[in-house]
């Protein structure tokens, strides 16, 4: 039963930590750019404020537009609670493997894009078109890089994949390095960060994700923003799980989980610092250079796969 408790704890933690880490990231970026920044808790304040605000719907918004925030938030939260962050073997982690996880995020994106088209503004359609196009290119690259690990572990279950990484002796595996680079590239694209998309922009012609949210207000907007923060945390945790899982708690003991929490937080901070430095030093890519970027990620992941067969299995 204690694993059930830790499962709930972990899911809550993922949801509650997401805005804090988003705040941490934006503060870090602000500091790097010689600004003071609004503080780590600012996203939480925003969400709280938005929850209290009135919702205004466009006149002919359909039920799709109204229910999409709930679907997007629920699907993302469901995906987040499946990923093992602290405890290796949680009850929910078996309900969806990596492929189902990607598909859950796909479901969220599907509805998000539909909501973008529901009002019938040019911006919404533009955002939907771009988001779906780039997601379609990113998804194979992401699955390919996951496959490199899945084929090694003979499993797509995150728990099994992590324990496979934990139990095999530490070797230099070029294939995994390739998969990691591909995964990082895709994660940046999927989470809508610079250089693919800029979450803080409101310049119409450059935005992708934000263009679909333009018509949202109040609690709907809060849920959408929260979901995208959870998504960032989810991808970070996924990268940690797949590539640097050492430190995750194998048994459901209180001390072990606490220790795992500290280590997880440290790893997250390292990833976010890297992301902040990257976002500060890079400019946004031109829109039609994004396919090339994602294609590179795909080629890298595929090379990783070939190398896995060549160097690690075939030898």
């Amino acid at each position: 039963m204690s694993s059930m408790f830790f499962q709930c704890l972990q899911a809550m933690l993922m949801l509650l930590m997401a805005p804090v880490l988003a705040g941490f990231l934006s503060t870090l970026k602000a500091r790097l750019q010689n600004r003071h920044g609004a503080g780590i808790l600012q996203p939480w304040r925003d969400i709280r404020k938005l929850f209290g605000k009135e919702v205004v719907l466009a006149e002919h918004a359909s039920w799709i537009f109204r229910f999409t925030p709930y679907i997007v938030f629920t699907a993302t939260a469901m995906a987040a609670s499946v990923v093992p962050a602290l405890l290796l073997d949680t009850p929910l982690s078996l309900t969806a493997d990596v492929i189902a996880l990607v598909a859950l995020l796909g479901l969220a994106r599907f509805f998000l894009a539909l909501a973008g088209m529901d009002i019938g503004t040019a911006f919404g359609g533009m955002g939907a078109s771009r988001e779906m196009t780039f997601a379609a290119l990113a998804e194979p690259a992401m699955l390919m890089s996951v496959f490199v690990l899945a084929i090694g572990a003979h499993s797509t279950n995150l728990t099994t994949m992590i324990s496979h990484t934990l139990t095999t002796p530490l070797l230099i595996q070029p294939s995994i390095a390739f998969a990691l680079v591909a995964m990082l590239m895709v994660a940046i694209a999927e989470a809508g960060r610079i250089p693919i998309d800029n979450p803080t922009t409101h310049l119409e012609l450059t935005m992708i994700h934000e263009a679909m949210l333009l018509e949202y207000s109040g609690r709907h907007l809060a849920l959408m923003e929260w979901a995208s923060m959870v998504k960032l945390l989810l991808f970070s945790t996924l990268i940690i799980d797949l590539f640097i899982p050492w430190g995750i708690s194998v048994e459901s003991s209180f001390i072990g989980v606490l220790l795992a929490f500290v280590i997880w937080l440290l790893k997250l901070i390292v990833l976010l610092v890297a992301l902040a430095v990257l976002e500060t030093s890079l400019a946004k890519l031109r829109l039609f250079e994004v396919p090339q970027y994602l294609g590179t990620a795909f080629v890298l992941a595929f090379l990783g796969l070939i190398l896995h067969y060549m160097l690690e299995v075939g030898a």
Binding site: L171, I172, A177
Partner: peptide, 20 residues
């Protein structure tokens, strides 16, 4: 062997990078 495999993989990567 491990190190050389890693270096070989990097060489391949660089060949792709040169091409791209």
């Amino acid at each position: 062997q491990q190190i050389i495999d890693g270096l070989a993989a990097l060489t391949l990567l660089i060949s792709f990078a040169l091409l791209a």
